[in-house]
Each structure stands twice: as structure tokens, then as C-alpha cells.
């Protein structure tokens, strides 16, 4: 029994889903979680969350950023404020977001916090583009 909960303040995305493996983008890089992993709490970075559903073997993918994950003997809890499922990502929109953020970043009037935020936005959109194009590149 190894269960995954994926929650946001606005909706329950995945609840009590049995999984066999999860790849979580933490602040210091991707972490591969298998059943029996030592307990861990980590802050999330911006990246692609993947996990394998136990019964069907289907792989779930989504872009997440900002939040934390908790691994305990029963499973994984992921709490994030922003999630984009693969189906929800539009490539054109994401590209526009990257361009907009890049334009903003070159301006000098940004405060540190604004700079950081814009950088995260750009990264999020870019990761989204990568996720959409992933299949094309590999096949």
C-alpha cells in the first residue's frame, strides 16, 4: 500500500491513489520515490511531477511549482499552490508567457521579489512547453 495525495487549496487533484513510483521535483532536484522510501519532507521546485498508477500502469504528468511534499511509510502527500495537468497546457499560451516574462526580466526596475516571481513564471511556462513536446522528442 503506497498512496499518493495531490492537493491544492482549490481542489483535490488526486486522493488516495495507489502508486508504484513517483518522481518529484524538489528544490534541490528530482527525487525518485519508491515504496519504502525513508520519511522525508522537502520543498518543491518548479518541474514535472510524474507518478505511475498501480493498477493500470498509466503515467500521470503535471507541472507543479511552489509547495511541499511529505513522504511517510504510508505514501506521499504533495501540497502545491499551482498545478497544470498535461492536458491543460496550451503550447502557444506558454510560449507567449515565456516571451512576456523574458521581456519583463530585462527591465531593471524590478524588485528582488518581483524578479524572483517572474523568473518562476518563465520557468513554469518553459517546463510546460517541455512537457507537451516530450513525446515528440523521444519517439
Amino acid at each position: 500500500m503506497f498512496k499518493l495525495n495531490l492537493l491544492t487549496p482549490e481542489k483535490k487533484v488526486v486522493v488516495d491513489q495507489e502508486i508504484t513510483e513517483a518522481v518529484i521535483p524538489t528544490i534541490s532536484g528530482e527525487v525518485d520515490i519508491l515504496p519504502g522510501h525513508v520519511p522525508m519532507i522537502a520543498n518543491l521546485g518548479t518541474g514535472i511531477l510524474k507518478f505511475k498508477v498501480k493498477d493500470t500502469g498509466a503515467i500521470f504528468k503535471a507541472v507543479i511549482s511552489s509547495g511541499y511534499c511529505e513522504v511517510n511509510p504510508e505514501g506521499v502527500n504533495i501540497l502545491t499552490e499551482s498545478i497544470q495537468l498535461k492536458e491543460e497546457i496550451s503550447e502557444e499560451k506558454a510560449k507567449a508567457q515565456v516571451a512576456e516574462a523574458n521581456a519583463k526580466l530585462t527591465k531593471e526596475s524590478l524588485t528582488d521579489a518581483q524578479f524572483e516571481e517572474t523568473l518562476t513564471d518563465a520557468k513554469k511556462a518553459q517546463v510546460g512547453i517541455d512537457l507537451v513536446n516530450e513525446n515528440i522528442r523521444h519517439h
Partner: peptide, 30 residues
């Protein structure tokens, strides 16, 4: 509690608490 004291923190307990408190606060406002 089944919550272990030998838990791995990434990056550090302080940084995680800071993140979590901010999340908690955002959530209280929401």
C-alpha cells in the same frame, strides 16, 4: 506519533517551516 524524528529535511527544517508557515498564512486568508 508515527512521525519520525529522523526524517530527512530538504533543504532544512527552518526553511521548510518558513515555507509552510507562509502557505498556512495564505490559506488562512483564503
Amino acid at each position: 506519533s508515527q512521525f519520525s524524528k529522523d526524517i530527512i529535511f530538504d533543504p532544512s527544517p527552518e526553511a521548510i517551516v518558513e515555507e509552510l508557515l507562509k502557505k498556512h498564512f495564505n490559506l488562512s486568508v483564503y
